[in-house]
Design a protein around this nucleic acid. Structure first.
Length: 427
RNA sequence: GUGGGCGUAGCUCAGUCCGGUUAGAGCACUGGAUUGUGGCUCCAGUGGUCGUGGGUUCAAAUCCCAUCGCUCACCCCA
């Protein structure tokens, strides 16, 4: 094959990554801890397809959101139906909840997922086109105590992973009743000062004034600083919800920072909105976030059902773990290497290797016809604690040499004693 | 979509400013250092159209133009 062709063929698409064997232990560790913690909190795993009908996301996430407007991987199937690779996990979970009537079995469904999400953005640090998230959704309860629980579950995962110095940011974005009034107040406020806002914010002013609060531009910040606070406009229900949530969090020892400017990019949030940030990460510093979405189930065709959820970015978590120097347990590696002194013994070697493997001990041998010296080098590179050396002399007497690679000592043992010897070494 | 930085061996990079032997180093990889034995050391070897295309020149990794890729930031998010 020509070099030029190889350059294109042997290259991942932009914004995607291979996870190589040397990195896989991190992923196992993260996934296992996540499952463990979420199951302890009573959440059950659900797996939904990697793609859905486009309409699900348009309706669920919101037409005016950046995700829907410019970040979705949308394509047509052969019959012209529009499908989209899932850009987030909540809408698919709610879809599955409705499709399988999970609410009928159980008035409260506690579900979690782990999987890849897809967004067609320009990649940068901590942002990829295919990335992995885990998340949890509690569908069916309007009570603030479930908000507190799901926040606690998220924080517990980070804690179990050994992460420190994470900040929980908390806000309420109101509901159908009170948010329109706040939006009107924002419009009134920003309307007078429109000249001082950036181009993007003038656009946001028309589409979704709440988003202006998120703008990081200095001149906008000056205006935002003095804008009306959401907390002056929350209705009684929302205010009570928020206060009770705070009370719950205080009581279980979770510290948080109230940030009235915290606005999430998905339209479905109501009442509680939160974000968990790690300062190490720089520009893309959110390792997780979530909130309540009391209208989403209804929006997707179900009956009115309150719900709350969160999602976390797994690449960002691993990145933070790396920056915080957290050690991750790795695979033990191969325990026994079977070396041969000549090719006549390879079949015997294969047979012995399989016997060892069937007892649950990992074993490896040479498949390249290498010299004994070179096999020993391979064994050493694998950091194998024991090497079995099959020599013609010993085999005549049904014996093999077993070498302890740590202290370099070797002895001859009978073929029948191999398993007993290894078992003694490992159990 | 907008801007900045960077593309030389599998990896980390030197060489580029100021054009001039056959493009280098370390690590990694392969083999060897007396019969069938790893690590340390020593020796040798494999590996590069210097991202790609064009231009200037007697001569280009080096200068100019274009293009692609990577990366960081903005926007937004995980």
């Amino acid at each position: 094959m020509k070099i030029k062709e190889r350059i294109v063929l042997a290259k991942v698409p932009k914004g995607t990554n291979d996870i190589l064997p040397e990195q896989i232990d991190c992923w196992y560790y993260l996934e296992n801890k996540t499952r463990e913690v979420l199951q302890n909190y009573g959440y059950r795993e659900i797996r939904t397809p990697a793609f859905e009908h486009t309409e699900l996301f348009v309706r669920g996430i919101g037409e005016t959101t950046d995700i829907v407007q410019k970040e979705m991987f949308t394509f047509q199937d052969r019959k012209g139906r529009s499908l989209t690779l899932r850009p987030e996990g909540t809408a698919p979970v709610v879809r599955a909840y409705l499709e399988h009537n999970l609410g009928r079995e159980n008035p409260l469904s506690k579900l979690f997922y782990i999987g890849s999400m897809f967004r067609c953005e320009k990649p940068q640090a901590g942002r990829y086109r295919q990335f992995n998230q885990f998340g949890a959704e509690a569908i069916g309860s309007p009570l603030p105590v479930i908000d507190a629980e799901i926040i606690a579950a998220a924080l517990s995962i980070y804690k179990q992973l050994g992460l420190t110095d994470l900040k929980l940011m908390l806000n309420s974005v109101g509901c159908r009743k009170c948010r329109p009034q706040y939006l009107k107040a924002l419009k009134d406020y920003f309307g007078e000062k429109r000249e001082m806002l950036c181009v993007d914010c003038r656009q946001r002013y028309e589409q979704n004034p709440l988003r202006i609060l998120d703008c990081k531009k200095e001149k906008c910040q000056l205006v935002i600083k003095k804008c009306p606070s959401i907390f002056e406009y929350l209705c009684e229900d929302c205010a009570n919800h928020f206060n009770t949530l705070r009370n719950c969090l205080d009581n279980i020892g979770i510290t948080y920072q109230i940030n009235p400017l915290l606005v999430r990019g998905l339209d479905y949030y109501t009442k509680t909105a939160f974000e968990i940030v790690a300062e190490e990460l720089g520009a893309q510093n959110a390792v997780g976030g979530g909130g309540r979405y009391d209208y989403l189930v209804e929006e997707l065709g179900g009956k009115s059902t309150p719900a709350v959820g969160f999602a976390a970015g797994m690449e960002r978590i691993l990145e933070t773990m790396l920056k915080q120097g957290i050690r991750i347990p790795v695979w033990d590696g191969i325990r026994v290497f079977i070396a041969v002194t000549s090719q006549e013994q390879v079949v015997t070697a294969l047979s012995i290797a399989n016997q060892i493997r069937e007892k649950g001990i990992s074993a490896e041998m040479d498949f390249l016809g290498k010299s004994l010296k070179s096999q020993m080098r391979t064994a050493n590179k694998l950091q194998v604690p024991y090497v079995l050396i099959l020599g013609s002399e010993e085999l005549k007497e049904n014996k093999v040499t077993i070498k302890d690679m740590v202290n370099g000592v070797q002895e001859e043992i009978s073929l029948n004693d191999i398993l007993a010897y290894l078992k003694k070494a490992y159990f």
